[in-house]
Design a protein around this nucleic acid. Structure first.
Lengths: 352, 352
DNA sequence: CTGAAAGCGCTAACAA
DNA sequence: TTGTTAGCGCTTTCAG
């Protein structure tokens, strides 16, 4: 019998017909569902192979079962290596579990527009959303809660832990900041600045606490918003260097800002680490490329991404089992940070 | 009348019922399809708004119409900033056209395993695939052709243009290499090496041609495969530096390898650019962070990504119009490169 | 201009 | 163990 030509993807019905069984039997066999005679299963699998069956149509299956093999990730940008690392881990983990990953980017300039695309996600059979809070995130908690109410599992990934409505995967910011300040203090630094775009975020709060613990003065250098953050950080860094009471060490809000600090130092002829010690935060890939390499507080981004996926997979499984646990306290996973000591920090120069 | 509670996402039927019309009319109104009385449309839209209708379920619509609002991107890694830039542009363009982007990563170590996940894509209602060839890509042309035959538009993005079965978005490699060699030659360099993991790729071929054009000797330093490419590149770079006839300038296969070259030079105390000029390729983000900043051949990654999306959107539109053009010569878009002259190149030192 | 009916591909009940 | 039936939410004939 000549193979009947099948245009378009092969469906379960094709396989069933060829194997001489009903579609439902074919479906069961293909899914390894129980209650299929071994010989029948064989038959079906062979037919599938011969026809080049590529697996069931997920749209159809999803429509029928309500299941979903897709999770969504919302980040600010791919080219920020922090997010890239996070997304990579998420995708890897998801792939190993047979999940597809839809990535949506929400540029800071479009936080408002983004609502519609998130809603679309919901209607696209997405099982979960991994959300990394960005500027303006406060505005969308309502939306997120709404999505969550519609059965979509929302997981927050971030280091600000002031959140309790959703499962959250975060890091112990205050511990990380303490690591950095302890390191600088033990190198003899007593004038330790903090270069940050915010003075109310967890990192800033922790900085103040850490510095106070040693009885040191707070030296917060606030990066103004409005202009692109790198440019603003660079300007603020210059101002920091030009100030008469320039600190001997600076903790930067993150590595992106630390890069600007380094470049500003170079522009002013301030040697790092001899004249100025710099510590970053996050441990982005570029930290190691800088010259000198950047001492920084490492955030376990890969682990965090994987954990977020696990939480979603868990939620999916639980929902399948009918345990529609509405609000039994969202999970909170907090990772510790580590200090990566590299070349940008050194003992405080005695002569100042 | 109290709002009847609707659990789960609101469907078109809910909207229809509330508006007092049939589902088909609601569907038409929501889609802005012709043949709906203005007043009826109003009614439907209002009902939709009141119910918080978030748009039609794409699974259902896709199942019915065969349309798809999802495109897939296959890259090797997120953390390689080349791919990150590409993916970012793709996602942005896609988002602006209302398309969702599924990103699949194919680590070099898993090129074989990856087949199944690509097949899954096909069954997930994906309209197009943007494929950036990676190691082992030859092995999957068969698969790609198969997917393509099933109605999925495959677009290749890359700089090796030896491909004619699929639409391709690429760059003029030989022009780019010539740019680099011309630059070095005009700086007085006559011993120009090429540090590359392959001696048969377009870039290597172009290097040989360019160097021959000036009557210079070929100095190809081949990075062995098997071990991680960065490590291998570093070792080869050291060998290059230690050789008695060390070149005065090196063109690197890409910026990733150029980074290794820089670090090897630092390790050996060879000053860049005084003792050695280095040119990269791609213009990754890190090129600007290096010290000195890397002179490199810029590839317009963002434009390429956007163009790839356009090609897919075009194909979707054409298919909807029924123009199932089977094989009318795939599009080829070739971008020129530009040379970004930065600090890593300088006139050849006279004394050697 | 609107509604009723059918079906995209799949799977969960229920029957056999 | 297997087949039959129905329906997920939507769109698209085809009548009205």
């Amino acid at each position: 019998m000549p193979d009947p030509v099948i245009r378009g993807p092969v469906t379960i019905e094709h396989v069933a017909r060829r194997a001489g069984v009903s579609p439902s039997t074919a479906s069961r066999a293909l899914r390894n569902a129980p209650g299929v005679h071994a010989r029948t299963r064989e038959l079906v699998l062979r037919a599938a192979r011969e026809l080049g069956f590529a697996g069931p149509n997920w749209l159809a299956r999803g429509l029928r079962t309500g299941e979903s093999r897709v999770i969504a990730v919302e980040i600010e940008s791919f080219t920020n290596s922090y997010y890239a690392e996070l997304a990579e881990a998420i995708e890897r983990k998801a792939r190993h579990h047979g999940l597809l990953v839809v990535i949506t980017t929400v540029p800071a300039s479009e936080v408002d527009t983004a609502e519609s695309s998130l809603r679309q996600l919901l209607r696209s059979g997405v099982a979960g959303l991994i959300h990394r809070p960005v500027t303006g995130w406060e505005r969308r908690r309502r939306l997120l809660r709404e999505l969550s109410a519609c059965g979509l599992t929302v997981v927050i990934v971030g280091d600000d832990l002031t959140e309790s409505d959703f499962p959250i995967v975060g890091v112990d910011t205050s511990q990380g900041v303490r690591l950095a300040i302890d390191h600088l203090y033990s190198l003899g630094h007593r004038a330790i600045g903090f270069l940050s775009p915010s003075d109310t975020c967890d990192r800033a709060v922790s900085y103040r606490a850490s510095v106070r613990r040693y009885g040191l003065a707070e030296r917060l250098y606030l990066v103004p918003s409005g202009i692109p953050v790198t440019e603003a950080a660079y300007q603020t860094a210059l101002a920091l260097l030009d100030a008469p009471d320039r600190p001997s060490a600076v903790l930067c809000f993150n590595d992106l800002i630390a890069v600007q600090m380094m470049q500003a130092a170079r522009a002013r002829g301030v040697r790092v680490p001899e004249d100025l010690s710099i510590v970053g935060f996050d441990d982005n890939a570029e930290a190691r490329l800088l010259q000198p390499a950047l001492t920084t507080v490492r955030i376990p981004k890969a682990e965090m991404g994987e954990k977020a996926v696990e939480i979603i997979i868990d939620a999916i499984a639980r929902r399948l089992r009918g345990e529609l646990s509405p609000e039994d306290k969202p999970v909170r996973v907090v990772y510790p940070t580590t200090l990566e000591v590299r070349g940008s920090t050194a003992p405080c120069a005695p002569a100042r």
